[in-house]
Every structure is written in C-alpha cells, then in structure tokens.
Amino acid sequence: MRRTRIGRWWYKFSRNPLSVVGLIIVVGVVFCAVFAPWVAPYPEHAGPYVNYREANQPPSLAHPFGTDIFGRDVLSRVFFAFRSSLLMGVVVLSIVVPVGVTLGLLAGYFKESWVDILIMRITDIFLSVPPLILALAITSVLKPNLTNAMIAVSVMWWPWYTRLVYGMATSLRNEYFVQSAELIGASKFHILFREILPNCVSTILTKMTLDMGWVILIGAALSFVGLGEQPPKPALGTMVADGAKYLPEYWWISVFPGLAIMLIVLGFNLLGDGIGDLFSLEEA
C-alpha cells in the first residue's frame, strides 16, 4: 500500500467513525443549500407562495416533511433555509476570526504590557454579557433582518477567538523558535504572523468548525424571536416558531425544521472533533 499525505490524513480522521458521519452531514447540508433550486422538490415554495388546498398536509411521498399552513412544502423550505443559516455562519466567522485572532495575537505576544491589558479587559467585558441577550439588544436597536443579525452575532463572538489565541500566543512566545527569531532581529509582524500564527491555525480551524454549528444555532434562536431573516424568506428558527403555534396537530411544521437545526449543529460538532484529531500530534 502506498502511503500518501492525503491517505495519512484520512487514516487519522476516519479512525473515529463519528467524524465521518459529521463530514457526511456537513457535505449533505452544504450540497442541499447550494443546489437548493435544483434539489428542492418545489423551489417556488421558498418565496411568497400560497396554496391553501395543500395546507397542513402530513408527511407523504409528495411532501416528505409535510406542508405548512400556506400549503408550502416544508422540505423545500428547509433546504432554502439552510442557505441563510450557512451564510450566517460563514459571514460571521469571516468577520470574527480575523479580528479576534489578531487581537489575541497582539495581547498574547505583548503580555503584561498596556496592549495586553487594554485588549483583554475589553474582551472580558464582552465575555461577561450573556451572548444571546447582547445579540437581542443589538438587533432590536437595529432593523431586524439577516444582515443585522449577523452583525449582532459577530459583535458577541470575536472575544472567544481573542481568548483562544491569547492563551496559545502567551505560551508560544516563550518557545525557542520565537526567541530565535527575536534574537535574529525579525520584525514584530514576522513574529506574530509568520512564526506564532501558523502554530495556532489548527486549533482555530477546529474551533471554527465547531462554531459554525453554534453560530447557526444562535442565528436560529434570533430568527425564532423574529430578529433574523424576515418572511416570506425561509429561516429555520422562524419556521420552528411559526409551526409551534400549531402543535401538536400539525407537528411536522415545526419538528422537521427543528431536527434540521439539530442535524447541522451535530454535523459541525462531529466534524470539528475529527478535524481536531487530524491535527493532533500523535503520529500515524
């Protein structure tokens, strides 16, 4: 058997079968979201579509997840809702990670200087406010829509990355390779972004994967209380909230979107664990 780098990665990753399950879920969800117009049985149901004759149908072959009170196919709406959920995760993380990581690097490398004190005290303040409440406060001040929901979640999320990277940077800066670079006379920029940062990447990636799930969950919570994507566009939280009024008779309207949220969070968590294994130092 030839040993390749990709093969080695797969060997480490797949030693835990749950990681593979996570990967399959995530790939599946992403696929359904990206190709929703083609995969969804009734793509037009994602918009302002009404057909009362088909309303409140229980799950059937034609409508595997049933239909809602407007007669829209729940499965199709779930697929389209994946889009806003994933978009939320991707946008939030691409704002939060560069900001949080940079601040964490600076604070960790200049430990015990005013830079550290300033950054970390601000971080502490943000971390001490319950995240959902902060996000609710921000979105209720701004107009409730997907963009503002993303801004709100971003504001509360960056300190976690600052904390994470701060911890790593404070220990990495004492490593001999960092000391060597300093003694050679390398610039601070080089030391922060070329020596320290590359050693944090694996942990950051693992956390990002886990966080995709959590950000989507928070996004769903916000849309559940009406502070996310606005109707008629589908959002998982809104769907659960709307359907909840018709429980338990028309249970499928809220249960299937709820299960979809669970599936996404579970998928990203399992995948995150697998990515953690991939980067673990243990030799294979």
Partner: peptide, 14 residues
C-alpha cells in the same frame, strides 16, 4: 545562540 531543545527551536510550520 543555539538552544538546548532542538524540538522547539525550529518552527514546526516552517
């Protein structure tokens, strides 16, 4: 300077 621990004196990612 050359440090004691060759493991940590070279950046593993470079």
């Amino acid at each position: 300077i050359v440090f004691q621990d060759p493991g940590s004196s070279l950046n593993p990612r470079r």
